[in-house]
Design a protein around this nucleic acid. Structure first.
Length: 304
DNA sequence: TAGCATTCCCTGCAGATAAC
DNA sequence: GTTATCTGCAGGGAATGCTA
């Protein structure tokens, strides 16, 4: 009761001096949006820095200018200053295809994961470099770092970066198995085009390209040429491709979530299942078999 | 045997929602 | 209006399996 009287008294005083407890959220909302969009701060980071709740900062991203909010909360928000400014362009999400092709091209030259994890801006973290090939979006800063590293390395010799011949040959074999094209197969003006294909033969993507692959022994036959040859022959693809959509549909049919499947498969946690569902990782053959038996389907039911 | 590739474990972020 | 909690997911470090 006493607190209530004190609060009513304070509210009367605030009104009398022209500062009611609530004020339009517009100014605070614009400040939060500026900190988030222009300065690269996360909403939780803004909440911590201002001493408010994360849900408050999140709400302010969507309120209208005249929507009321508490003055003391708005003042905390307005006092918050940006940390480590990052431009909107730097934090924007972009298509990773061109960056992935550049990294693949450098592997095809014989550069190893540890070298590329340093030179392409992964802070030397090798697992993240290899995981990057499954990314569906990246930010513009990463794209620019990879482009800079590609420019530096595309005509370089891996030996100059401490890569011995044996390791370089192994990496070139890996690229070969995955049909990753070297820099010579890409043009700088088309490498970022999702529709572009690497030019191994001068006629890739056509039956003639497949013929040139065979004639000149350019191995492996690139995917566009193999597809063109299959289509010309009216054949279905022979390689197995795991389908995240098929897995998602099977889980939905059973009412299972990722943790349910991981528990039934005996995995330590749901992380791998999340990565299979998102397409960011492919299951090993053993995991694929186990997944199929756990779901009571054949491995073909999990193919694309 | 070295080191690459994959998986696991942990932490933190964002969205949704119930509770205060 | 604010806080607490849960879920899904991404990223970093470490461990382990695999291969040349």
């Amino acid at each position: 009761m006493l607190r209530r009287r004190q609060r009513q008294k304070r509210v009367r005083y605030q009104h009398s001096v022209g500062q009611p407890p609530k004020m339009p959220a517009g100014e605070a909302a614009r400040h939060v949006r500026w900190l988030h969009d222009q300065c690269g701060m996360s909403l939780a980071h803004i909440a911590r820095a201002s001493g408010t709740s994360p849900s408050t900062t999140r709400r302010l991203m969507h309120v209208t200018d005249d929507e009321p909010m508490y003055r003391h909360v708005a003042e905390k928000i307005l006092r918050t200053r940006p940390e480590e400014p990052m431009s909107l362009e730097q934090s924007a999400h972009v298509d990773p295809i061109g960056s992935q092709r550049r990294a693949q091209a450098l592997v095809a030259l014989g550069f190893t994961g540890p070298v590329l994890a340093v030179e392409l801006g992964f802070n030397g973290h090798v697992p993240n470099f290899w995981r990057f090939f499954q990314a569906t979006v990246i930010n513009a800063t990463r794209r620019d770092r990879i482009a800079a590293g590609y420019t530096k390395l595309q005509y370089a010799d891996p030996a100059d970066f401490g890569v011995d011949n044996q390791r370089a040959a192994r990496l070139r074999n890996i690229a070969k198995e995955r049909a990753w094209a070297p820099p010579s197969c890409w043009d700088s003006d088309t490498i970022d085009d999702p529709e572009a294909i690497p030019e191994w033969t001068g006629a890739c993507g056509t039956p003639r390209g497949r013929y040139i692959h065979e004639r000149d022994k350019i191995r492996p036959v690139c995917k566009p040429c193999a597809r063109a040859a299959r289509e010309a022959a009216g054949q279905e693809p022979a390689t197995r491709v795991f389908s995240p959509d098929a897995l998602a549909a099977l889980l939905a049919n059973r009412g299972w979530l990722a943790p349910d499947l991981s528990a039934r498969m005996g995995l330590a946690g749901p992380d791998s299942v999340y990565r299979w569902l998102s397409g960011k990782a492919l299951p090993s053959q053993v995991s694929w078999d186990l997944m199929a038996s756990t779901l009571g389907v054949t491995i073909e039911d999990l193919e694309a």
